[in-house]
């Protein structure tokens, strides 16, 4: 099955486009039951990511942000929708269902950085083995070329001199150094797109800033497009030019980061923002107006996903389907009947 659609580059400037992406997981309800339920982990997500841009995907746990990221690099195959990716010739290609050689080729251009620097490296392999793995499986260069390239990449992520790291093992490195190695592994093939899944959430504050600055600097220098997944709005503020806020598998608000943080439109974004503690003992925050917690989106009703917790929902929200993500002025997109 070949589903690559050759859309000419002029049609879109985007590096990656998610078009109505969806992922549903069946909930097992016994062997003999036909009418199975589904968890709608990601439910009709669309956005464009420009070359060199950092788009933040923020939300609470279980909102589908990680699943979305994994679909964009094809670690998870979407149930529905398309992932249009700009290939070397500048055409957009749907990678949602690629297999075999074309998929392997796509892997050169899209990489992922994982959350846990302790678990994202095989403890039995040297740093050289780990960083050179993509080159090895893609059969890029001979041994000495790989060595050169790995050394260069290690210096690029601030592990200098590379010779003192190459032949060490993950457990001999600190958390911050390990995350740098993970970034080096993602960059060694010079991808144009990287999904970063909470790359700093497990690091200490004093280490975290360094990693954030490194990623920003590399994005500028190498023109990499990032999808930056985080639960931390404050981190997103420093990493992303635009953010998309997700709730139960849907994007509920999207726009320029600073705009969204200053003037949130969607009631969920407002709640999320007012819940973030501020490192200033004299600051006061309003008490939250929303109650309860996120539930798993199993066979959600055809109404706004936020209805149960929304402080401003009314009968219209109850009787109508989930609102579309539409322009609310000044380039801000929000999915709310009331906003």
């Amino acid at each position: 099955m070949n589903v690559s659609v050759g859309i000419p580059a002029s049609a879109s400037l985007a590096l990656v486009s998610a078009v109505n992406l969806a992922k549903r997981y069946p909930v097992s309800a016994g062997w003999f039951r036909r009418d199975r339920s589904f968890i709608h982990a990601v439910d009709g997500v669309s956005f464009d990511l420009m070359p060199g841009e950092t788009l933040g995907l923020v939300g609470e746990s279980g909102c589908g942000k990680t699943t979305t990221g994994r679909m964009l690099v094809r670690l998870t195959e979407p149930t529905d929708g398309q992932v249009l990716f700009k290939n070397q010739s500048g055409d957009l290609e749907d990678i949602a269902h690629l297999k075999g050689a074309p998929l392997k080729d796509f892997r050169r251009r899209a990489q992922m950085v994982f959350q846990d620097p302790y678990e994202s490296m095989n403890p039995r392999r040297t740093i050289f083995d780990t960083v050179a793995e993509p080159l090895h499986v893609q059969k890029i260069g001979d041994h000495s070329e790989r060595f050169e390239r790995v050394s260069e990449t290690l210096s690029m992520v601030g592990l200098t001199p590379p010779a003192s790291f190459l032949f060490r093992f993950p457990h001999e490195l600190s958390g911050g150094q390990r995350q740098r190695v993970a970034i080096a592994r993602a960059l060694v093939m010079e991808p144009s797109f990287v999904v970063a899944d909470e790359p700093t959430s497990m690091l200490d504050i004093s280490i975290r800033t360094g990693i954030m600055q490194l990623m920003n600097e590399l994005a500028d220098r190498l023109g990499i497009g990032y999808l930056y997944i985080t639960h931390d709005l404050a981190v997103a503020r420093y990493m992303c030019s635009r953010i998309a806020v997700m709730y139960l598998g849907k994007i509920v608000e999207m726009g320029d980061t600073e705009d969204v943080l200053q003037y949130p439109v969607h009631p969920y974004t407002k709640a999320l923002l007012s819940a973030v503690p501020v490192p200033d003992p004299e600051a006061t925050r309003d008490a939250l107006s929303i109650k309860g917690s996120v539930s798993a989106p199993v066979d959600p009703l055809p109404r706004c996903r936020f209805y149960d917790r929304c402080p401003i929902a009314d009968d219209y929200c109850r009787d109508n389907d989930h609102p579309p993500l539409e322009d609310k002025g000044a380039g801000r997109l929000a999915a709310c009947h009331k906003a």
Partner: peptide
């Protein structure tokens, strides 16, 4: 620590990095 800590409110100040581990 204070100046390495990002905040969603107020002015967006530059985050400083502590060297070393």
């Amino acid at each position: 620590l204070m100046s390495a800590f990002p905040s969603v409110r107020g002015e967006k100040h530059d985050l400083t990095t502590l060297p070393g581990e």
